[in-house]
Amino acid sequence: MNESELRVLPLVVRIERAAPPERTDALEAAAMAVLSLLGDPGEWAAELHAWEVTGRIRKVVRRARGAEWRRALALPGRTIEHRTAEVRVHPPVPLDDWPRDLARLQVSGTELTDTAEPGPATQPTLWANPALTMSAGKAMAQAGHAAQLAWWASDAAERAAWRAGGPAVSVRTAGGNAFEAKVEAGLPVVRDAGFTEIAPGSCTFVAEAPWLYGRVARS
């Protein structure tokens, strides 16, 4: 496959200077935005299919504020509002042919923090590898990958039950040796391609839900 055939899923996070979102809220919103598109692609079914069949579920997170955010809202897409975070998912686009108002947005500058400890996790839970350091934008894309692998690993009944709940997810960082144990349990694992920030093949996230143990998800 040549580069001109590759597609990417754009995600835009709203980061206003005076009121940036909590990091965990932004990660969860990104994962939920991806799930929203997978569960109900609507008019973008063809674009989603062309992206999925390549087997390369690349996502790029950019930030917007003020007029930039308003221009992103004017483009085809869907906005997920989750507690303090707003994330807009747009239909997949060719890697080298982004809409101008998305292409001009910055990838850098997505450093976010949590001002309070996140509450108890509910499943499905997307667990981050505690051994890796990722910007919020990078982690948002990886959480989106984990959610997608979990969706692919679920059957129709499991997806229907999941969708009835939102579909919602929790994002947390695994503690101690828990991440390695979950990887060994046969849960869906994200192995990064190494385009940015971390080494190729790094395990960044694992998706956990009762029905996902022992499943083999596409990666």
Rank of each mutant, 00 (worst) to 15 (best):
R163A: 13
G194Y: 04
R191Y: 13
A156C: 11
A178L: 07
A160G: 10
A193Y: 08
E180T: 11
A178Q: 11
G175K: 07
G165P: 10
V189F: 11
R159N: 11
D192K: 07
E158N: 04
G175T: 11
A156W: 05
G186T: 13
T173M: 05
K182R: 15
T173Q: 03
G194N: 09
A157K: 10
E184V: 04
W162E: 00
D192G: 06
T196P: 00
W152A: 13
Q148A: 13
Q148G: 12
A150C: 11
G194L: 10
V169W: 00
A153S: 09
A161C: 09
A160C: 12
F195I: 14
E184D: 14
G194K: 05
R172F: 04
G176M: 12
K182E: 08
A193Q: 13
G166T: 13
E180F: 04
P167Y: 00
W152M: 13
A164E: 15
A168L: 12
G186Y: 04
P167S: 00
A146G: 15
G175W: 06
G176W: 03
A160W: 09
V183R: 06
F179A: 03
T196M: 07
S170Q: 03
D155A: 11
A181V: 05
A181C: 03
L187Y: 10
A178I: 00
T196G: 01
R159P: 10
G186V: 06
G194H: 05
W162V: 00
Q148M: 15
S170R: 07
W152P: 01
A164R: 15
V169R: 07
A168M: 13
A161Y: 11
E158I: 05
V190R: 02
A150P: 03
P188Q: 10
A174L: 05
T196F: 00
A168S: 13
V189N: 08
G176L: 08
L187S: 01
A156T: 15
V171Y: 03
A193T: 11
G166M: 10
R163Y: 02
G166E: 13
S170V: 02
A147K: 01
W151P: 01
D155M: 13
V169N: 02
L149W: 04
L187Q: 01
A150N: 03
F179Y: 00
A153R: 05
R172Y: 01
R159W: 03
